[in-house]
Simulated assay, not measured.
Amino acid sequence: MTHAPCPCCKSHSSVKCAAPAPDCWFSQAARSPIEMGGIVIDTRARMGYTAPIGSTDQDRIRHLTVALPPVYAARLFDAQEQGATDQQLQEIAAEALKEVYFQDGGRRAGSLEEVRFTDIEHLEFDL
């Protein structure tokens, strides 16, 4: 999917301005839909988790396309705006995948302690 370029940085990102000026309307306009409707994460990465003994927790490559709720979209957006490192953003994404994908919003795997999200081959966010 191609998006109109940001007039500030010429980026075609659907989520953010790559080099936002303080008054960049493109970056500000992206925030409202993200907070209201969440975002979709599409990733191919190694994922595993820490769980009680007896569960299958071995890391493996997974390709996931998951809609993240607005609370995680806002956390990712805020962290990025505040200059978070890739590692910090990955930790937020891992927490979101834990809740939404692995635990299905609290309907399963309630005893998961953490999700590992490493060896990222592909990671894309979209509205």
Rank of each mutant, 00 (worst) to 15 (best):
V66Q: 14
M36C: 12
M36K: 15
M47E: 04
G54A: 02
I34T: 06
A51H: 07
E114H: 08
A84L: 04
E81T: 04
S11V: 02
T2C: 01
G37Y: 06
L97E: 00
A21G: 07
C9F: 03
K10G: 09
V115Y: 00
D78L: 06
I120K: 02
P7I: 06
A74S: 12
S27P: 01
E81M: 13
A74C: 05
A93P: 04
Q90H: 14
G37N: 13
R108K: 15
G37H: 14
H3T: 09
Q80I: 00
C8F: 01
P22S: 04
R44M: 07
A29E: 13
T56V: 11
C9I: 03
G106V: 01
R31V: 10
L97V: 02
Q28V: 09
T118I: 05
P69Y: 02
L76S: 04
S111M: 13
C6A: 04
P70M: 07
H122V: 09
H122M: 12
R116G: 07
R116C: 05
A4N: 09
D104R: 12
G37K: 06
T50Y: 05
C6S: 05
I41V: 15
Q90F: 11
D42R: 15
A30D: 02
S32F: 07
A67H: 12
S27A: 14
A21K: 12
S111H: 11
E99W: 11
L112N: 01
A19N: 15
D78T: 12
P69L: 10
A51L: 04
D57P: 00
G38V: 06
A51C: 08
K16D: 09
F77M: 09
D59F: 02
E95V: 03
I39R: 03
H63Y: 12
A21V: 02
F125H: 02
H12A: 14
A45K: 05
P52I: 08
Y101I: 01
D42E: 15
L123G: 03
E121G: 06
T43K: 08
A73I: 01
A84N: 04
A18H: 11
Y72I: 00
P33C: 02
Q87S: 11
T43P: 05
P7D: 09
D42H: 13
A96H: 05
A93H: 05
R44C: 09
L89R: 11
E121P: 00
S14C: 07
K10Q: 15
G37M: 06
R31Y: 13
L68K: 05
T118Q: 12
R46Q: 14
Q87L: 14
V66F: 04
L68I: 06
A18N: 10
L64N: 03
S27L: 13
G105E: 02
